[in-house]
């Protein structure tokens, strides 16, 4: 576990896996799209709009999955203090936020023809909206510090607090909803899902998961690069000052504390 968490090992490992991941994701996406748009039957109640489900539901799953992933990374960074855990959490947030926003948008586009309204204060919609707020809060917090490492650490703590809160929010929104919900809106639960519809749903979900891992790897690399740039810039400044003063202490300090020199 610790071995894989070393940045150099991570880079090598993911570098080897990347072409396979991309190929797999592309194949899954093509097959998923074919099944979702052409190969699956029309729902007897909802007609063709059921095809929105093949985007909407996997996106909702990913929105939740990414948040749980962020919290797990936060826990790992808290317990084992892995530098990579923070970076993974940080790289996950934009993907999770994107999928959560997509859930809301596609849900809206599904609700308009089916329920006759773009938005209802339904328990699920509302919980999803709050999840989006949690993502936005995390992203804002992580980017609010001059030192990215400090931002990631604060973000990990927030993700943990958030994940404790998510069930409470979900429960309270459900409770609030049963009190206020007008009964006129049709529920989307519906009967158990037909296998011909389940297949595109699952394949799209896997395609989204593949997409998530590709973005995760790319963003972790981006983050590692940026940290290295920062470390180099700081050490560069140190060198300039040391050279100007003829000061050997600064150089000696720099040698050991390259990464922490910003504090």
């Amino acid at each position: 576990m610790h071995r894989f968490a070393k940045p150099s090992v991570f880079l090598k490992l993911t570098g080897a896996m990347m072409p396979w991941m991309v190929a797999l994701t592309v194949i899954l996406t093509v097959v998923g799209l074919y099944l979702a748009l052409i190969g699956s039957p029309v729902d007897y109640q909802q007609g063709n709009t059921v095809r929105i489900m093949y985007i909407h539901v996997p996106a909702a799953w990913m929105g939740l999955f990414c948040y749980v992933g962020m919290a797990l990374c936060g826990a790992m960074s808290l317990i084992w203090k892995h530098p990579l855990a923070d970076i993974c959490a940080r790289a996950t947030a934009p993907v999770g936020a994107t999928f959560t926003a997509l859930t809301l948008i596609t849900g809206s586009l599904w609700g308009e023809p089916m329920w006759g309204t773009w938005w209802v204060w339904d328990a699920r919609l509302t919980s999803m909206l709050i999840l989006l707020f949690l993502y936005l809060g995390y992203i804002a917090l992580v980017n609010a510090f001059d030192d990215p490492e400090r931002g990631s650490k604060a973000g990990s703590a927030l993700a943990l607090v958030g994940v404790v809160n998510v069930p409470i929010v979900k429960f309270s929104v459900d409770w609030w909803n049963t009190l206020h919900q007008p009964a006129s809106v049709a529920r989307m639960d519906g009967p158990s899902i037909d296998p011909s519809m389940l297949a595109p749903l699952l394949i799209m979900a896997f395609a989204f998961t593949g997409y998530y891992f590709i973005i995760l790897v790319l963003r972790v690399r981006l983050e590692l690069n940026q940290r290295r740039i920062r470390a180099l810039q700081l050490s560069g400044l140190f060198d300039e000052r040391a050279a100007a003063n003829g000061d050997d202490d600064a150089l000696a300090y720099d040698q050991g504390h390259n990464a922490g020199a910003g504090k």
């Binding site: 709050i130 707020f133 804002a140 917090l141 609010a144 929104v173 409770w175």
Partner: peptide, 27 residues
């Protein structure tokens, strides 16, 4: 505590804290 040392802490804290306040508001 999370926003200590952050830029624009005042606005940030509202974004962080308000979603967590929702259960208290509801009940």
């Amino acid at each position: 505590a999370l926003i200590l040392g952050a830029r624009r802490g005042g606005v940030l804290v509202s974004l962080l804290v308000l979603p967590l306040y929702i259960p208290v508001l509801i009940f």
